[in-house]
């Protein structure tokens, strides 16, 4: 055993997740929001890897793989949307695109 405690790995994962969360909630630039989302996804992946490493199972890595796929698809669509929004509104401000409100 290499001596890395599991709770430290999970703690790091939580820190990264919360940082990404703050990014999503605070930033108004769509690109930055997407990037913060990547951080959050990555943090989740880290938690899976830590757990997989704790139990010596392949499932953790497979979950990470799936998250990776999800992230790739999400970035593709999200950036497409960002381009589209910029094209229509000439801004990347997420708050100014609030036409659909109740």
């Amino acid at each position: 055993m290499n001596g890395i405690p599991m709770e430290l790995g999970l703690l790091l994962s939580a820190v990264l997740f919360v940082l990404g969360l703050i990014g999503v909630m605070v930033r108004r630039n769509l690109i930055m929001i997407l990037m913060s989302l990547e951080v959050m996804l990555n943090a989740t992946g880290l938690a899976f890897i830590v757990a997989g490493s704790r139990w010596g199972q392949a499932d953790g890595q497979i979950m990470f793989l799936l998250i990776l796929t999800l992230a790739a698809a999400e970035v593709g669509v999200g950036l497409g949307l960002a381009l589209q929004i910029f094209h229509r509104f000439h801004t990347l401000d997420a708050d100014s695109v609030n036409e659909m409100h109740g």
Partner: peptide, 28 residues
């Protein structure tokens, strides 16, 4: 928003700490 996120972090922290400790590093 940062305060809100920090509250969430605190909760996560408590959950993790209460979960007890274990070793990692099994090669897969």
């Amino acid at each position: 928003p940062s305060l809100l996120a920090l509250i969430l972090f605190a909760e996560l922290l408590i959950v993790i700490v209460l979960g007890g400790s274990a070793e990692t590093g099994q090669l897969v």
